[in-house]
């Protein structure tokens, strides 16, 4: 019987199975155990979003609650990784990366390179990302481009529960630092997820929808939005292909080029701010490598170059919507926006 699981439960299952498979896998973060040593399950939070709930009972000794100091425990996780553990550190919001950035981009990302390939840093840093949670400017950002910019980091941002489980398992088994970003608004969405363990290799995009007229390249929350836009456009006779990049570093540009060579039209959809983004990166790569295939200008549908607003009305306008994505597609088809 097909079993469905939410993205949140898929993360829990991936951590559970990997901790069971390999005792060097440890999970650390703020309140991920919650009330360790106190009586009763009620206090066992399982992290800010409840993702790690119940794991302490299955793997006592492999989960650690940390002090409220991101710089300390992210540094500890990276250090532990260099000494033989496979830590998975949970950061409540990617927005808090600022205080531990030195450890990530100037230390972990550089070790393999600076030690001539002799040092490995198998650490995973998980964090929630994205807007739409009414959590204001400091808890809603889509900071994928910042990490994708740094050589030495791998960056993952899945769009569904199946990919989440397989990519998180791959992240844990990978010998390099991985930034694993989970969109809060995807947490409760369910897909079919096998009970067995499986790993999805990095650097292979998924074709979320096949189409022949226009290529949308996107990731994360924008995948379901792009699929929704594609259904609207189908009724207008526009057949859209949706490519879910899944991993932003490494990035699967071959799949993008192949699709654009077929469709001749490209829309880059990115929830991040537009400057130096995944959208601009893909647009530039296609302009360099597949310019001859393009039948018209590339369109970008992104958030504006502004912080995420707290006002719910403004936040809704800020996030690229299925309607705006559909408009972007119509633009590349040479039609006026509706």
């Amino acid at each position: 019987m097909a079993r469905t699981l939410s993205m949140k439960d898929a993360i829990n299952e991936a951590l559970d199975q990997e901790m069971g498979r390999d005792p060097t896998v440890v999970v650390l973060g703020e309140d991920i155990v919650g009330g360790t040593g106190s009586p009763g399950e009620d206090d066992a939070w399982g992290g800010a979003m409840g993702v790690t709930k119940g794991l302490i009972h299955k793997h006592p000794g492999q989960l650690i609650d940390t002090p409220l100091s991101e710089s300390a425990y992210i540094g500890a996780a990276i250090g532990a990784a260099t000494c033989g553990l496979r830590p998975v550190a949970e950061l409540m919001f990617v927005d808090f990366m600022g205080v531990c950035l030195d450890q990530i981009f100037n230390q972990a990302a550089k070790f393999r390179y600076m030690f001539g390939g002799k040092a490995e840093t198998p650490v995973v840093i998980r964090a929630t990302c994205g807007a739409g949670f009414r959590a204001a400017a400091q808890h809603s950002q889509m900071l994928t481009p910042i990490f994708t910019h740094i050589p030495g980091l791998k960056v993952v941002c899945p769009s569904n529960a199946y990919d989440t489980k397989g990519l998180l398992i791959q992240s844990i088994r990978d010998n390099d630092p991985v930034i694993f970003l989970e969109h809060k608004n995807l947490y409760d969405r369910e897909t079919d997820v096998p009970e067995e363990s499986y790993a999805i290799p990095f650097g292979e995009a998924s074709i979320a929808r096949e189409g022949t007229d226009v290529t949308i390249v996107t990731y994360g929350m924008m995948v379901p939005y792009s699929l929704e836009a594609s259904e609207t456009l189908k009724r207008e006779g526009i057949d859209v292909e949706v490519i879910d990049l899944r991993t932003l570093s490494p990035i699967d540009l071959d799949t993008v080029f192949e699709s654009v060579e077929m469709t001749g039209r490209l829309v880059c959809v990115d929830e991040a701010n537009p400057r130096c983004s995944i959208a601009s990166d893909v647009a530039a790569a296609v302009a360099q490598e597949a310019f001859g295939s393009l039948k018209g200008p590339v369109a970008m549908v992104t958030a504006p170059h502004a912080p995420v607003p707290f006002s719910s009305a403004l936040e809704d306008l800020y996030i690229p919507s299925p309607e705006r994505i559909a408009d972007g597609v119509r633009q590349t088809m040479g039609e006026r926006s509706s």
Partner: peptide, 10 residues
């Protein structure tokens, strides 16, 4: 995709 999903299983 279905065959890949099978082949990825541990």
């Amino acid at each position: 995709e279905d065959v890949l999903k099978y082949k990825r299983l541990d």
